[in-house]
Design a protein around this nucleic acid. Structure first.
Lengths: 210, 210, 210, 210
DNA sequence: TATGAATGAGACTTCATTCAT
DNA sequence: AATGAATGAAGTCTCATTCAT
């Protein structure tokens, strides 16, 4: 008969509100980019008034940056490469590529929004762009490390170049799927990509060795 | 009493005004994307009042689409592949790749703006996006044709897949350069890209033949 | 039967609109100061939408500065001291003081708003404040000139000091009337003020001469 | 289990918090006036959350009024006129004027903020304005009393007029210093002011007596 | 072939204030 | 004796667009 839960809804809960705002923002910003994301739209989608958004985030820039940050973390967790895999280099790399492909199909917001920001060249760079580029560097670095262990005969420069090429290819394939939609078999494309990169690595390694 | 035609200059010149508007728009839209491009900003940059822009273009959508169109034509002319080149397939493809790379270094507006539009997913698709996707299809088609003649042993599906992969790789490398700037040797990256694609084609061809 | 004047109202007329906006602003800003003057309030009072105000003025700062400028000019014209007056120095100065007093009773917006701005110390000074201070300097300069001719025996420093004192007294008396309203006989107070300043001038002159 | 009283510090101290809020407010309001003073800004300057300000003060009006009140008391204490001074009237008045001048140089917040409020004319008068005007009346009254004892031959009306003029002059000179800053020798100006007022008083007295 | 002026809608952001804890 | 969170109203300013000239 006591009504503890009848305090319906409005029990101030900062953490949950923050999540709701981020959820709404990621959806909108992933569709319409930085400028296309209006605070009013976020407010409508998350149910909190615009002024409440400003309690949780300093300004729009801060909000978008937070979205990118969280989105990257989620994505990183989703692709987390299994540690001590066995098999041939090609096999190991193929598994990795498939993981990445699947993660991009499932949660593409991070990369879509990030690429939009990356392509812009505003005079005052949005903080979200910086955050995305940092995230991208981290990813490239991880790939570099994996490639170094998988192809121990390659010199540093070659490894870096291959990692760069691998990331660029992933971006391009992602864009391709964003354009052509579910018709694209992203996993298959990533498999091809992985194979080409491995071939190149093998050839480079044999050349530098022999 | 009639003014002599020596007054020339400033006899309100429609064509020139139109160009000035397009020039201003391409610059701003390339920096800030669709939503970030305001008529007021274009007006300020080209020196014509906003209302004059509406005399030349139906609305903002029309303006952006026109920019993409002109930008694509400029770019197409810049890469125009020389007709009956001789040499090995790899040589011919390598030359092509170098041409594309150089064109993207010189006039990247078309692709930058196009990719931004391509990544967005707004409810009512901007006409500029359609125009860009059509342009992209044309480019992919051309590559498919070239690949078909260079690797006559490949079946249709394989050729299409390779062309898709080639375009995706180009997009990704372009993004990479947009992010990291002039430090990136885009021509070298495209050379690597061409080689990998050719290797793949050769392997596929030998497999499908044998 | 022709209806030329039936184009009622909305025949775009920049000059008139600008005046209407300034009229509305001077009234509101004179009552509530810089921050208290909202564009919405000005819009409501002048009948033009807020966005139209921004066609005529860059921003709020620009609007307030324009108000001060126009207000000062109006006031200057209203007090314009008659040229070659005759009579004793005291008589001439008394007439001047009466003129100033009357002008301040009639159109006090300029000084009220100006003093409000002058007392503020924002980190980024409103342009209106600069404009007011310049106007005030002009007024002080004029008084200095008049005092110089009326009391030719006084040295420069003394004249400047007296002019400063005269202006300060005028400000103070104006504040007094703003506080206590129509009950105050501003003309009488200015007469007293003029007399005291003249006495001081006479005494200083005799001292410096003798 | 009870916390020992050695925790001391930070045992939420109401009085100190109140002071901190008032200190912050006086600074901001002195810079930006009534409307320009936002609770958020006060909160940022004093380090307490906005809601805490509302624990100590009913609303913004109450806060500003409290500031004026405290500021006036501080100022009154600083100028407190020594009781039974000896010397000629001019000497006594000169000392008084110097005291006032010095107090205004040291702690000008009270008068600056007060004058800003006094010049405004909003529909619902801020309580702070009322408080300031009352304080001003008290000051005028004190001067009237002193003037009455120093010039016993003057009639009531003349004394009141001189007191009014004295206060107005003080306001004007204060404004002058606010505008021109430390370059102004406020003490010297007040000395001149005192002398002129005394001369006027003497002349009036002799006239009304003779 | 243009353009000065206007405008409703909506952008981002801050406001003073409240309330449950 | 405080405060984290929330909120409706209002702030300044920009938006894309129109229209009479």
């Amino acid at each position: 008969m006591s009504r503890p839960q009848t305090t319906r809804k409005k029990r101030a809960n900062g953490v949950e509100s923050r999540q709701r705002i981020l959820d709404a923002t990621v959806e909108i910003a992933g569709e319409r980019g930085y400028e296309g994301t209006s605070i009013a739209a976020v407010s409508a989608k998350c149910g909190l008034p615009a002024s409440s958004i400003y309690w949780h985030f300093k300004d729009k820039d801060d909000l978008i940056a937070a979205v990118i940050e969280r989105s990257f973390e989620t994505w990183l967790a989703a692709v987390e490469l299994p540690g001590e895999e066995t098999g041939t280099p090609l096999e190991r790399v193929t598994v990795m590529a498939a993981n990445v492909a699947k993660s991009l199909v499932d949660a593409p917001d991070f990369l879509r929004l990030g690429l939009m920001l990356a392509l812009e060249r505003r005079p005052t760079e949005p903080r979200g762009r910086t955050v995305f580029l940092r995230a991208r560097d981290i990813a490239t670095q991880k790939i570099t490390e994996v490639a170094g262990t998988v192809f121990p005969d390659l010199d540093q420069d070659a490894v870096r170049m291959l990692a760069t090429y691998a990331v660029a290819g992933a971006d391009g394939l992602f864009v391709h799927r964003e354009i052509h939609g579910d018709a694209v078999d992203l996993v298959a494309m990533f498999e091809l990509h992985a194979q080409l990169v491995c071939d190149a690595a093998a050839r480079m390694a044999s050349r530098s060795k022999g």
